[in-house]
């Protein structure tokens, strides 16, 4: 069954390794960036908030493809000689970070006001309040949206080939051009993407459980 897929599987899996590496980097650092910036946005003075608003607004309104091009061509312009992978990875971290920022900020805003007042009334100051009361409750609310953003990010790594970063979909297109077995190959690719995304969904379910508590 699927002889073309079988013979080309090692090549596709090689591409998958790049997809996984790129995805892992983008998801981990994008989420970290978003958590930090989203938390700052909830506690910082107005000018800092405006800056963060602008960041979120701009990146959420632009296709990731454009951001990748922009990163790829503008890093050299400022004297940074980066390979395609690094350029794509950095661009995507900043891009995904904007989405996670918004998710985290929304989750923080969704923590009931009574929690803030209770913390204030035992004399807690802003930073310990964020750390002990607000962020732990917000993280739980943020797990589901951040999971969605992460899955989106994994799929968006398939655009990386546009600036010459070779990965799974790039490999798939090469194989299809050579073999013309589009259905077989892309069916295989679909399954590989699913296998990459599935553990993340599982991890998110675990995280949600870990952060959860009885209501």
């Amino acid at each position: 069954m699927f002889p073309v897929l079988q013979s080309n599987l090692p090549y596709l899996l090689q591409g998958a390794v790049y997809t996984v590496a790129l995805s892992a980097f983008v998801v981990v650092f994008g989420a970290l960036l978003g958590i930090v910036v989203g938390t700052i946005a909830s506690a910082a003075p107005a000018p800092v908030r405006w800056l963060i608003n602008a960041y979120v607004f701009v990146f959420r309104g632009v296709p990731v493809l454009v951001i990748m091009f922009l990163g790829f061509y503008s890093f050299p312009a400022v004297g940074l000689r980066l390979d395609a992978y690094t350029a794509v990875a950095i661009s995507m971290v900043v891009y995904i970070g904007a989405f996670v920022t918004e998710a985290v900020r929304g989750a923080i805003a969704a923590v009931p006001k009574g929690q803030v007042e209770a913390a204030m009334s035992i004399g807690m100051r802003r930073i310990p309040m964020l750390r002990e009361i607000i962020v732990p409750q917000a993280l739980r609310l943020a797990v589901a949206p951040v999971l969605n953003i992460s899955l989106m990010a994994i799929k968006q790594t398939s655009y990386a080939s546009i600036v010459g970063a070779w990965e799974l979909s790039f490999a798939a297109r090469e194989v299809v051009e050579r073999t013309l077995a589009a259905f077989e190959i892309f069916l295989g690719v679909m399954i590989i993407y699913f296998l990459i995304c599935y553990p993340l969904s599982k991890a998110a379910a675990l995280a949600e459980k870990r952060f959860s508590y009885v209501h």
Partner: peptide, 9 residues
């Protein structure tokens, strides 16, 4: 408070 506001976590 009327609504207790204990830290649920």
């Amino acid at each position: 408070f009327q609504s207790y506001n204990l830290f649920p976590h």
